[in-house]
Amino acid sequence: MIELKDVRKHYRSGNLKSEVLRGVNLQVKKGEYVAIMGKSGSGKSTMLNLLGTLDVLDAGEYKLAGKSVHKMRRGKRVRLRNEEIGFVFQHFQLIPNLSVFQNVLLPLTYGRKRLGKKKGRVLTLLDEMGLLDKRNQKPDRLSGGEKQRVAIARALVNEPGLILADEPTGSLDEETTESILSVFDRVHEQGATIVVITHDLEVAERADRILRLHNGVLV
C-alpha cells in the first residue's frame, strides 16, 4: 500500500537548513495497522504530511496504492488524497460552522463521484459511530470523543485505502481514548490500512507493527 524509498525532507528558516527526514524507508502492506512513534521534533508530523500528500518530498520515492506520488503533478496528488487517504487529526479539524452531517460529507463534495447515493453512506457511518441523532448539530455542541468519531466517519466516507491518524487520542481522556481505539480496531478488522502517528505507547500497542522515528530515520 505504502512504499517509501530513501525519502528526505528539509526546511529552511533564513540561512538555517534543518534536515527533518534523512532517508526514510518504509513499506506498509494493504490492511496493515502500523504505529510510528517518536519524540517531539523527531519528524512525525513531517512524515504524516508526506504520507498524506499535504507536502512534497525533497528526494526519494513515494508510492501509494501502486502510484508514484513523487512524480505526480499537484492536481493528481489532490485527487489521490481525496480518493485514497482519510485523515484523523489530534485536534479533530472539523469546520465549526458546518453540521456533523456536512463535515462528514465534505470529502464527497470535492470528489468526482455523484453525491446522491453517497449521502446514504454518510448516514450509515454516523449510525455506526452512534452519532445519527447528532447529525444536525454543530461540532461545538459535541464532546471530545464525539468530535473524534465524526472525524473518523469523515475519514472513512470516501472508502479510502489508507487512514492516516495523527495523535488521534492526544486530546482525549482515558475512557474516551479506549472507545476511539476500539473504533480503529473495528475499522482495521474491516480491512483498512491504518498508519497512526503517536508518542503514546498504549495507542501504538494496538497496531500490528511499531516503528520509531529517530533523528529523521525510521528504526
Binding site: 485527487r79 485523515f87 479539524q93 465534505l106 470535492y110
Partner: peptide, 16 residues
C-alpha cells in the same frame, strides 16, 4: 485559514 487547510486536506483543489 484552518478551514482552508481542512478543505485542502480533504481534496479541495487550489482552483476550487
Amino acid at each position: 485559514t484552518r478551514e482552508i487547510g481542512i478543505r485542502k486536506a480533504l481534496g479541495a483543489t487550489t482552483f476550487e
